[in-house]
Design a binder for these strands. Structure first.
Length: 488
DNA sequence: ATGTCC
């Protein structure tokens, strides 16, 4: 055949939800690739995702498959929606496989309020939350910190917040890793990262970061939902989506540059793609990145914890009851931009790997280590944030995810349209009125930023959910739809 | 994602 072969042509259909690209040495692959998505998702996947995940498979020490989740799209180096596990001794760690926004993640909070109680006060509530939670690019936080305190935040994560009045004792266990990666070490973080981060605790940021008031629209598994605190249709819940702000961004930038400078010369790793700079996990540099990334991850957990305390305060002001009385309990906090050392059974052998999840959510199944006792029987809560207009999902981790995707699943809808194109299609204030007409009251730090997040710029979330539920990477528990949103 | 380029 004379026509140029597309990377997509190498893929073989395994089942309704899975394609595989076998390891091809002539493409330079060190490992096979797995692509998750139902036929509709698969058809729409752009060629860049295939090329990027093939590039990932060329990195040394990759274990099992390099994978993309159904919400995958083009990212920096790795695709967003990418999962890759590397051997702890022979493998690498790559900042591009984690993302600039280290520990970007979502937490979900329940209430015992109903939509009928909240709707009449939604404007007042959103306006109050908007005043309590600093949002937008470059915003300074509501928690002034000394450098010593900032160090404690970066090394202790959520625990610092609880000790300092930003939350309840019981919040601590309902977070991935209890809201703290113990490897964190502030001393391997640059002064520049420290000076950017010290002012940012308790800030939402920009882009697709938000605090959203939602109602339960549908419950798929009432028993599991109940364990997670979701009991009734029309119950009001809150989701907070943000990360480690300028602190994590600077750490990612610092180490990307350092690794690129040393990759070929010091470690003899071929550079197929500059954005995929990486260091051997057992090198000094690799270990330092792991420590700095952990510090950023802890800041991300702490950031969402402080924001949650603002959310509780805002509800108290508007509804005149205590947060305890309104049962504003944390369901769970999950990261979707992070790397972790975890143990998996590979070809009958137990192996320690560094799992990179970039735009991918941990999805640990029932009886896994490291999930709270209350969720042992049903699996870890998985929180998947949709676009502002189409709603979000609560799911549960599965045993199949432990076997097939290094305990990982999708993280959101996944963009299909560039930010610039979305902005050309609609003006922020027009979108705001349209959403208001649909019953979603929005306050946004930037109207241009709002337009970039229009629902039409994202994949159909139902296809993403159908894909992960169908592939059993996580199972549907409940669907949530927005009634109010604060956007960065 | 991000003091949207040091």
């Amino acid at each position: 055949m004379g026509a140029k072969m597309s990377v997509k042509d190498h893929a073989v259909k395994i089942d309704e939800y899975t394609h595989e690209i076998p390891k091809k040495s002539d493409l330079g692959m060190n490992a096979p690739v797995k692509i998750y998505g139902n036929p509709s998702i698969y058809k729409m996947l752009d060629r860049g995702v295939f090329q990027q995940i093939i590039n990932v498979s060329k990195l040394p020490g990759l274990v099992g498959h390099a994978m993309t989740m159904p919400d995958a799209h083009w990212g920096y180096g790795f695709p967003i929606g990418g999962v890759a596990a590397f051997d702890v001794n022979k493998g690498v760690i790559s900042p591009g496989g984690i993302g600039f926004d280290i520990n970007c993640g979502i937490r979900m909070i329940t209430t015992n309020l109903t939509v009928a109680e909240v709707k009449p006060k939604i404007r007042e509530l959103i306006n109050t939350l908007y005043d309590l939670i600093p949002a937008g690019v470059g915003k300074k936080g509501s928690v002034p910190l000394s450098m010593q305190q900032f160090r404690d935040v970066a090394e202790k994560g959520t625990e610092w917040c609880i000790e300092n009045g930003y939350g309840w004792d019981e919040d601590l266990e309902k977070q991935e890793n209890n809201g703290c990666l113990t490897a964190a070490d502030f001393s391997v973080v640059s002064d520049k990262a420290k000076s950017r981060g010290i002012k940012q605790l308790g800030t939402l940021g920009s882009g697709n970061h938000y605090c959203e008031v939602q109602t339960v629209n549908q419950i798929f598994d009432p028993d599991t939902a109940k364990i997670m605190g979701v009991r009734d249709k029309d119950q009001v819940v809150v989701m907070v989506h943000c990360g480690s702000r300028g602190f994590g961004h600077q750490i990612a930038s610092d180490y990307l540059r350092e690794f690129l400078n040393k990759m070929e010369t010091k470690w003899n790793i071929p550079i197929y793609e500059k954005e995929l700079s990486a260091a051997p996990i057992n090198s000094k540099e690799g270990q330092n990145y792991l420590k700095a990334m952990s510090a950023a991850a802890n800041f991300g957990f702490a950031n969402r914890q402080v924001i949650m305390s603002h959310v509780r305060k805002g509800f108290e002001q508007i509804f005149g009851r205590t947060a305890e009385d309104m049962e504003m309990n944390l369901v769970y906090d999950v990261a979707h931009n992070i790397a972790k050392q975890e143990e998996y059974l590979i070809d009958g052998k137990s192996r320690q790997v560094i799992v990179h999840r970039k735009g991918a959510t941990r999805s640990f199944g029932p009886n896994s280590k490291d999930i709270p006792s209350i969720y042992k029987s049903v699996g870890q809560p998985v929180i998947l944030g949709g676009s502002m207009e189409t709603g979000s999902y609560l799911l549960a981790g599965t045993e199949a995810a432990m076997r097939n995707s290094f305990g990982s699943t999708a993280h959101g809808s996944g963009r299909t349209m560039s930010r610039s194109k979305a902005k050309k299609k609609i003006k922020g204030h027009v979108l705001r009125s349209q959403m208001e007409a649909k019953g979603i009251y929005v306050r946004a730090a930037s109207m241009a930023g709002l337009a970039e997040e229009a629902g039409f710029a994202y994949k159909n979330i139902n296809d993403v959910i159908d894909s992960i539920h169908g592939a059993d990477l996580s199972r549907k528990i409940a669907q949530l739809v927005p009634i109010g949103n604060i956007k960065g």
